[in-house]
């Protein structure tokens, strides 16, 4: 037989729902007030001041104990990032040159193929002229032969 116990979750949800609906508007109204933003700003300022104090103390401790500070480690990282950027620029330049080269190659291919076509035409015309010259030579020779035999 299962023992019936008190359901904490249902009670929790009920309390939450009732609290939420009762307080939601009041909380939102407070959050919207200028005075709230002002207080938030003041808390922030104090927190930032505290953080700054911690930063300064940590920095001076690290200096005294001869341990590299966050700034110094970040400087080394920056140097690596700079090298990374230079490699990136080189990659960009190679890409650009490759693109240009591909374009130039394409243009070259086109002009070579148009030259080929032109050459084909020239050869065709030459062949035709040779044929017509040969034909006319043959005609001339035939006429000459006829004249001689007469």
């Amino acid at each position: 037989m299962t023992q019936s116990t008190f359901d904490v979750f249902s009670l929790w949800k009920e309390i939450y729902n009732k609290t939420e609906s009762a307080w939601h508007d009041a909380i939102q109204e407070t959050l919207e007030k200028k005075s709230f933003a002002e207080s938030l700003g003041q808390i922030q300022s104090q927190y930032v001041q505290f953080q700054e104090l911690v930063n300064k103390m940590t920095e001076s401790y690290l200096k005294q104990t001869n341990i590299p500070s966050r700034d110094e480690i970040a400087n080394v990282a920056s140097l690596i990032i700079d090298v990374d950027s230079k490699i990136d620029q080189l990659e960009d330049e190679i890409d650009e040159k490759e693109e240009r080269l591909v374009k130039e190659m394409d243009a070259l291919k086109k002009s070579v193929s148009s030259l080929e076509k032109k050459l084909d035409k020239v050869i065709e015309l030459l062949n035709k002229s040779i044929e017509s010259i040969a034909d006319s030579n043959a005609t001339v020779a035939a006429t000459a032969n006829k004249t001689v035999s007469k």
């Binding site: 959050l31 919207e32 007030k33 200028k34 709230f36 933003a37 002002e38 938030l40 700003g41 003041q42 922030q44 300022s45 930032v48 953080q51 700054e52 930063n55």
Partner: peptide, 21 residues
């Protein structure tokens, strides 16, 4: 919305936050 108020120049010390963190 609420950010307009909270990030108001008069209260939100932007430069201090960036310089500190």
């Amino acid at each position: 919305g609420l950010y307009t108020n909270w990030l108001d120049k008069r209260y939100f010390k932007l430069d201090n936050i960036v310089e500190t963190f």
